[in-house]
Design a protein around this nucleic acid. Structure first.
Lengths: 213, 213
DNA sequence: ACCTGAATACCCCAAAAGTGGTATTTGCTA
DNA sequence: TAGCAAATACCACTTTTGGGGTATTCAGGT
């Protein structure tokens, strides 16, 4: 029997999963928390085989929670659970040491497979994102990967734009010249193929390049 | 025993709910579909006491599905299920005749209460949105309702902006003068308290004023 | 050593956005 | 019917964007 703890801010979803697994599945959700902060405390009192972690949570998201766990010295396989197939989030999760990545619109058998593999420290990718990940690590220029070719600096610029800053404000915030900000913005617009900053922000949110909350 | 059908594009969530309800709850999820289009067909073959409907779905969302049901002549209580507490979506749902409105971060007892009341054709609002709804229908100017005071036309303008259109393009698309577009945009920016169109779009998405897909 | 991507910075200039006003018409409702 | 909100439209003006270039530096990989 694989024991798991679920970290998700939606009680209904968590309780639903808990109720869904029967003994015949060989999986049991033994704990649930809405808050990443509480995880270390819970893990010190409860032995689990893996952590089922939602990425998109208020206050402390899945990525931040993973960092906390690493800092506290925990080494339990983590299966990331998310709604969006954002290459950036997948990348961040893997860099932080996640063992698997599955979408919330997966089916039960898929989740069972993901949990089973992850608990054995085998990697698991949901089929829907498999190709994407492949392409990314192969050529870094698949059809839907353009958005993820943005550099960290460019992402910063987008975040500033979404925050209502104009060229001057951004240049001051990032300690660079206004010229540079304009160059970055222009490059981003070219890469994302948009005509205005407004559309740029919309697309960035849509593709998960920046977060809203 | 209350029988319900769930319309949600996330199989895991739906299956979870299905598994969560025991006979002692007096509720049974008898059917599940990811697609609003299939609902009429299913309902003709299956007798249910209520429909548990997710608002945010790809292709055909909850609001559109309700319209379809009405057109087809169905009259089954509908409990809307959503992640976001967007006043606009609440308003739209109620206008289309939804019986209740509950958030996905509700607890199981809350959902049981919501389903029970809704099946008896009593209205149900999740506590988290109750105050918001009250304020809205009382004075239409509560603290967090400013965003929802936007007119339909203003929302159209935002959608155009998010689509990358400039003043001229918008004026042509909506058959109004560029002056009018500028006036609308200015009013929206004043209402939402933003300084740029980029921030305007971000806030509109954040508050659920416009949808992304 | 060479190439490439990323970050930086500059030029010019037309077009658009943003800011300050005012004003008319229409439809709803108190 | 008087009042109000919403949609419409206009003027004048400053600031910012967006699009066309070019160029240097620096880090990483072949």
């Amino acid at each position: 029997m694989i024991t798991a703890i679920i970290v998700d801010d939606h009680p209904l979803f968590a309780e639903g999963l808990k109720a869904m697994f029967k003994a015949s599945d060989g999986i049991e959700i033994v704990e649930h928390t809405k808050n990443g902060n509480e995880l270390p405390c819970i893990l010190r009192n409860t032995q689990v085989d893996l952590i089922l972690m939602d990425i998109d949570m208020p206050i402390m998201d899945g990525i931040a929670t993973m960092e906390l766990l690493k800092k506290e010295g925990f080494n339990i396989p983590i299966l990331m659970l998310t709604m969006h197939q954002s290459m950036r989030k997948i990348k961040n999760s893997l860099e932080k040491g996640a063992q698997g990545y599955i979408l919330k619109d997966a089916s039960k058998p898929e989740l069972v497979e993901a949990i089973t593999k992850t608990s054995l420290r085998q990697n698991y990718f949901h089929p829907k994102i498999n190709d994407q990940v492949f392409d990314y690590f192969r050529g870094r220029k698949s059809a839907r990967a353009e958005a993820d070719e943005l550099s960290e600096r460019e992402r910063e610029i987008i975040e500033c734009l979404a925050g209502g800053m104009n060229t001057k404000a951004i240049s001051e915030a990032l300690h660079i010249s206004e010229h540079t900000v304009k160059t970055h913005r222009r490059n981003i617009m070219y890469k994302l193929d948009v005509k205005t900053s407004a559309e740029l922000v919309k697309l960035a949110i849509e593709k998960g390049i920046i977060d809203i909350g």
